[in-house]
Design a protein around this nucleic acid. Sequence first.
RNA 1: GGCGGCGUAGCCAAGUGGCUAAGGCAGAGGUCUGCAAAACCUUUAUUCAGCGGUUCGACUCCGCUCGCCGCCUCCA
Length: 491
Amino acid sequence: MSLQIYDTKIGKKIPFTPLRDNHVRIYACGITAYDFCHLGHARSALVFDMIVSYLRHSGYKVTFVRNFTDIDDKIINRAQKQNTTCAELSQRFIDEFYIDMKALKITPPDYEPRATEHIPEIIDIIEKLMTKGIAYQADGDVYFEVEKFPQYGSLSGRNLDDLKAGARISINKIKKNPMDFALWKASKPGEPKWDSPWGEGRPGWHIECSAMSRKYLGDSFDIHGGGEDLVFPHHENELAQSEGASGKPFANHWIHHAFVTIRDEKMSKSLHNFLTIREVLKRHQPEALRMMVFATHYRHPLDFSESGLRDAQTSVNRLYNCMAACAALTDGTESSKAVATRAEIDKLRSLPDRFQEAMDNDFNTAQGLGCLFDAVKSINRISQALPAPPAQADINLLRRGGADVTKLAQIMGLLSQEPQAYLAGYQEKHLTAVGMDKAELNKLLEERIAARQNKEWGRADEIRDLLLAKNIELKDSQDGTAWYVAGDRGQ
RNA sequence: GGCGGCGUAGCCAAGUGGCUAAGGCAGAGGUCUGCAAAACCUUUAUUCAGCGGUUCGACUCCGCUCGCCGCCUCCA
């Protein structure tokens, strides 16, 4: 079974084959830089990070482009409101975007082009459309003429009659058809402007992506994607412009991910129900966010909640605990009896295949994670049952299983840290949060060990309860007393 | 109004025309322990919104009903 990807244009899953050899070319729509990024942007970045990573894992060479739209109406309005320039405003939020991406540990794309740095390429496409008679000039604007592109609506499954019927489009007398959209806009006083054959002006909203994808990936490339809300009109218009100009097929596959919702409503700026990435990362670890995002299939809505994110954190810890146990494994002997059952051996050996099968099915990360946790369960069961000198066969199986789990989880950016370091970091962060320093904790732990040796159970329990009040739980063992962060429920 | 999606255990969430309906979280029981707890193990849907239909057989395909959501305007 090979990779199957759901294609928005066709509305079903189809086998994926790169257009050119083993080389996959992907373009994803990035942000319009005028504000901080919210969780929806995080999902978008995370989903494409995973897709690129999985394609590379599968042996493809990948060229990944994610653009910045740094000139448009929203930027102009916001800049005017803040009494600054568009260039300053967009640069500021591109910088902020990079801070968020770094915090989320997103692998940078191969190219991150900006609209304002591709004005000649934009003008070039518009000129082609003008030459072919698919675009027309009206006052200082240039419009794409939808009637001249018969396939208009093919991506989003609409036709011009439906669109006209729904028409919430503002009346614009200079357009031939209300659905015609601007390729180039004449500049108003005080707005950024560039020279063009049609006078001074600036690009329309969709044309930058047509120009930049063409420059870095060619007229035809493999995958184009973004959030569901971009299907219409953004991607529909891009498709029309690009194919209209080149006469060749544009993107071979269209991938769109669903929204992040809050209480089942779309998270969006206009509804004022969004959480910024940095807000969430103040309270939660990036891997917990990744776990939550990838536990839902990318085409299904992801309903955000604090409790959901805490659940995700707990399951991330489960992964790390298992890996820490694997790392602590000591060599065994040939003479001991192996404890792994046939079923467990099969489960662990088949993990990479089962994971691949899940991911090949339209990047089903939720199912892939299920495979990973399945393996974790087997690893834990075997580790727990290991006799005093364990059998070398079991140790080999566990180490191999642990290595597979780590490698596969890393495709989603999970298990990106050394287990011991991660767990120690998790504990330290908690200590800080509850306002206790390590020396103080150690002092109490030592006192309790002494009390227990003297069988002063009252004092020992008192210390335990005292720490429990700070969500620190103790575990006594022959080696001493270890402590853990208790479940954060109810916070 | 047009187009599209979703409804699976307490919560989150995969999945399939017929083999035990993944996995995570929470809950319950257990191993361990001076008592505990973390970790770990076991366990948790005779049932997949409701009603019809197709089929030897449907949760999975079709139709209808109810509920929720999205796009058609800027939006990841």
